[in-house]
Amino acid sequence: MLPRSGDVLHVTRAASVQFLRPITFRVIRVLDWPTYDGWLWLDGYELNASGDAVSRRSIFVQREGLHQVQTAPQHRPHTVRTARRPVARTPVRVG
């Protein structure tokens, strides 16, 4: 599983030995930094128990050790808007 922007992950010791205390992590992006095979650099936010971001972090983890808690919302297609009418401007009396 390759995480994508918006995914919420449960990161445990299975992902890296640095996570003796598991964290919940919302992905901003997968960084394109050189790594070992099967490892990733992720940029995102550590979340507290209520789902609020408490700190921004970049973490180095094994892809196979990540557990997805919530997937990112599906990308909505761009909607085309109709042309707007020009605004009628009239002089304003001051004083």
Score class of each variant (00 low, 15 high):
Gly38Trp: 09
Asp32Val: 08
Asp7Gly: 05
Asp7Gln: 02
Gln62Phe: 03
Arg4Cys: 11
Ser58Arg: 11
Val61Gln: 05
Leu9Gln: 05
Val54Thr: 15
Gly38Phe: 09
Val87Gly: 06
Leu2Thr: 12
Asp32Ile: 05
Glu64Asp: 15
Thr35Leu: 08
Val54Ser: 06
Val69His: 06
Ile28Pro: 00
Val8Ala: 10
Gln68Glu: 14
Thr71Trp: 07
Ala83His: 03
Leu40Gln: 01
Thr71Lys: 12
Asp32Arg: 13
Ser55Leu: 09
Val69Asn: 01
Leu2Pro: 10
Val11Pro: 03
Pro77Glu: 12
Gln70Ala: 15
Trp39Lys: 14
His67Val: 15
Val87Ile: 13
Pro86Tyr: 01
Phe19Gly: 02
Leu47His: 07
Arg29Cys: 08
Glu46Ala: 06
Gly95Asn: 11
Ile59Glu: 03
Gly6His: 11
Pro22Asp: 11
Gln62Ser: 09
His75Thr: 15
Leu2Cys: 02
His10Leu: 14
Arg81Tyr: 02
Thr12Asn: 00
Arg26Pro: 02
Ser5Lys: 11
Leu47Gly: 04
Ile59Cys: 00
Ala49Arg: 14
Thr71Ala: 15
Pro91Asn: 03
Thr82Arg: 10
Ala15Arg: 02
Leu42Glu: 03
Ser16Cys: 02
Tyr36Arg: 15
Val94Trp: 07
Phe19Ser: 01
His75Arg: 15
Asp37Trp: 04
Asn48Gln: 06
Arg76His: 07
Thr79Pro: 10
Val8Gly: 08
Thr90Ile: 09
Ala53Tyr: 05
Phe25Val: 01
Leu42Phe: 06
Trp41Pro: 09
Gly65Val: 00
Leu2Ala: 07
Gly51Phe: 07
Gly95Asp: 10
Pro86Phe: 04
Gln18Asp: 14
Thr24Ser: 08
Asp43Lys: 02
His78Lys: 09
Val8Leu: 12
Arg76Pro: 08
Val61Trp: 03
Val54Lys: 14
Thr71Leu: 09
Asp32Cys: 04
Asp7Phe: 08
Leu47Arg: 03
Gln62Gly: 04
Arg29Gln: 15
Val30Glu: 01
Arg56Ala: 07
Arg26Tyr: 02
Gln18Gly: 12
Tyr45Trp: 14
Thr90His: 15
Arg13Ala: 12
Ser58Pro: 06
Asp7Ser: 06
Arg85Lys: 13
Gly38Pro: 08
Arg93Lys: 13
Ile23Lys: 04
Pro91Phe: 04
Asn48Trp: 05
Val94Ala: 11
Asp52Thr: 10
Val69Met: 09
Ala14Trp: 01
His75Glu: 14
Arg56Ile: 03
Gln68Thr: 13
Thr12Cys: 02
Val30Asn: 00
